[in-house]
Design a protein around this nucleic acid. Sequence first.
DNA 1: GATGAATGAGGCTTCATTCAT
DNA 2: TATGAATGAAGCCTCATTCAT
Lengths: 189, 189, 189, 189
Amino acid sequence: MARSLTKRPDLVDAALTLFMQKGIKATTTRDIAIRAGISEGTIYRHFVSKDALAERVFEDNLEYFWLFLKGYLKRAKTPQEMLKAYVCGFFEFSRKEQRRYTFVIAAHQTELKKLSREKMKPKQMLDKILRIGRKQGIFREMDDQLAGAMVMGTIMQTIFYLKSGRIAVSYDEVVEEVCHTCLRMVERC
Amino acid sequence: MARSLTKRPDLVDAALTLFMQKGIKATTTRDIAIRAGISEGTIYRHFVSKDALAERVFEDNLEYFWLFLKGYLKRAKTPQEMLKAYVCGFFEFSRKEQRRYTFVIAAHQTELKKLSREKMKPKQMLDKILRIGRKQGIFREMDDQLAGAMVMGTIMQTIFYLKSGRIAVSYDEVVEEVCHTCLRMVERC
Amino acid sequence: MARSLTKRPDLVDAALTLFMQKGIKATTTRDIAIRAGISEGTIYRHFVSKDALAERVFEDNLEYFWLFLKGYLKRAKTPQEMLKAYVCGFFEFSRKEQRRYTFVIAAHQTELKKLSREKMKPKQMLDKILRIGRKQGIFREMDDQLAGAMVMGTIMQTIFYLKSGRIAVSYDEVVEEVCHTCLRMVERC
Amino acid sequence: MARSLTKRPDLVDAALTLFMQKGIKATTTRDIAIRAGISEGTIYRHFVSKDALAERVFEDNLEYFWLFLKGYLKRAKTPQEMLKAYVCGFFEFSRKEQRRYTFVIAAHQTELKKLSREKMKPKQMLDKILRIGRKQGIFREMDDQLAGAMVMGTIMQTIFYLKSGRIAVSYDEVVEEVCHTCLRMVERC
DNA sequence: GATGAATGAGGCTTCATTCAT
DNA sequence: TATGAATGAAGCCTCATTCAT
C-alpha cells in the first residue's frame, strides 16, 4: 500500500475543511499549511496555485457526490423511484458528508460560479431523471429546466434550513415530505 | 435645490453594482472609488469601513425589497392570494430590480450570513403568510419553517435559472407555474 | 470688548488640551475641530498648517510660562533667592497650569525638538541666575550649562514623579527639598 | 554555520536606528524596510505589527542597558560605591551605546509610556541602591522616590546637554561632578 | 519532495489640506 | 469668516507566490 509518503492527502483535506468553513477566498495558504501540518511552499509542489487547489477540491468532491448519488439510484427502476432515490441521496449526502456537501454547494453558488456551471453533475443527473419520466408519460409535460429548478431549490433550501436548526420536524419526516412534494411537482395531475 | 451636494449616492450605487457583480470581498475600495468617480478617501467620509458600507447597502436594499413585496400584498385578502402575490412580487422584483435582487440574495446566502439571518424580512413575510393560512385551516398542518424552506427554494432557484437563461418557457408561464406549485405545496390535499 | 466673534480662542484651547493629552502627532485636525466646535476648514483660516498651530500654541504657552516665572522672581534680590523663586515658580506653574506645563515640557522634549531649542526661555532664565550668582562669587565656579542641566533635571524629573503619584511626601515638602538640593548643587562648599 | 539565515538582525538594527532618530511614530515601515534592505512584508514575518517591533526593540535594549549597569555595580560594596558606579555606568552606556541609550530614554519618556513604567529596570536598580543606603544609615531619611527622581533627573538631563554639545567641560569632569552632586543629594548632612 | 524566509503587489484606512458654497 | 465634502498621498498590513537550502 505504502501510500501517503506524500503529504498531499493532508493538504487536500485541510483545504476542504477550511474552504467549507470560511470560503475559498477567505482561506489563506497559510491557514491551509498550518492545518495540514506542512509548509506553505509545499502547497506549490502539488498544485500550481491556490485556485487550482480549490478547483481540484471542488471537482473531486463533486465527483464523489455524483458517485454517491449514483449508488442511491442503482436499484431504482421507475422514474418515481429514481426521483425519490435522488432526493434521499441528496439528503443523506448532506448528512453523512457535511464538509463535502457544504463546500460543493457553497462553491457552486458563489466562488466557482464560472467554473462550475457546466460541471454540476448532480444537477445533470436530475435533468436526466426528469427527461426520462416525461418521455415515459409519467411526469407531466413541462420545461425540464424549470422542473429541475423547482426540485433542486426545494431540496437545497430545505437542507439549508435543516442544517441551521430552524426546522423542528425530524430528519426522516423532512425527507419524506420533500420526496412527496417533489413528486407532486412533476407528476401528472 | 439642485441635486445631491454629496457624492454619496454615486458611491452607494457603485458599491451595489460591484458587490453584485463580484461579491463584497472581491470588490476593492479602489474599484468602488473609480466606478463612483470619487477618491478612495471619500468612502470613509460616508462609511466607517468597507464592511459598514456593504452592510448598509445590504440593509437598504433588503428594506427596499420588503417594501416592494408589501406593496404587492396590499390587495391580497385570502392566504392563497397572499402567497400568490408574494411569489409574483418576488419574481417582479428580481426582474425590475435586478441589481438589488441579485445582491441581496447573494449577500444573504454567503457574505453577510451572520448579519442577515434575523434580518431577512422577506422570509419573515412568507412565514407570516404560511402561519395565517395554517391557522385558518386553509394550508395544511406542517412545520412553518419546512414549508417556508420549500417555497423559498422553489422561487429562488427558479429565478436563478431564469436569469441564467436556461429556462426556455416565457416569464409569465414560469411565474404561473411556480405560483401553482407553491400553492400545491402548502394547501390541504 | 467684543472679542471672540472669532472662534480662534476655542481652537487654540482645544489644540492645547489635545496636544497635551495625546501629543501633537497623534492629535488630528479632526479631533481639534470637534473639540473646538468648529469645522476642520476653519483651522486653516487661522493657521497655515497644523504644525503652525502647534508651534504657535507652544510659543504662546512658553511665553506664558516665562511671564509666570518672571512674576515669581520679581521680589528676589540675591542669587539664592532667585534660584529658590525659580524652583518654586516652576513647581507652582506645573500645578496651577497643568495643561500648559505638560504640553510645553513634552513638546520641548520630543515633538518640537528642532524648533524649541533656542527658544526655551525658562532655561535661559535659569542660565542667567546661575551666571549672576557665579559672578557675585556666591555660586561656585562651574560650567553654567552643566549646573543648569543638573538643576533643570532635578526639578523636572521631580515634577514628573510627583504628577504620576509616585512620591508619597507632601507637595510643600517636595518643593522645599528640591530648593534645598538645587542650592547645594551650586553654592560654594 | 555561516551567519544569520534570517534578515531579522538587519531589521531590528534598522528599527533601532530609525526609532532613535525620528521616534517610533514618525518612523514608517517603509523607512525600516529600506534601511534594512528588506521588503515591508518581511517585517511581518518577524513581528506581528510595527508596534510589536517597537516594543521588542525597547525591551531588548532596556535589558541590555540593565545588564550593562549590573556589570558596573558588581564590584561596588558600599552604597556610596554603588551610587557612583550607577552614575558612571549610566554615562558610559550613553556614550558607548548611543543609539540604544537615546532610544530607550526617548521611548520611555514619550512613546511607550504605558508599556514602560513598570519595566524601567534601571530605575528600579537605583531605587534599590537608595533603599540600601538609607537602611544602612548612610543615606539620609527621605522618600526614596523623591531621591530617585532627583538623581535620575540630574543624570539624564546632564547627559542630554552633553550630547547636544552645550557643555564645555570634559566628559570625565562632568561625570565626576554628577557623581559628587548625586552623592551629596542623598548622603547625611 | 519539503521547507520557510522573503517578496511585492495590492488591500484597507487615515489625515492634513483644499475649495466650492 | 466659516463650512464640510472631497482629495490623494501615504501609512500599515496581508497574502499568494517564489526560491535557496
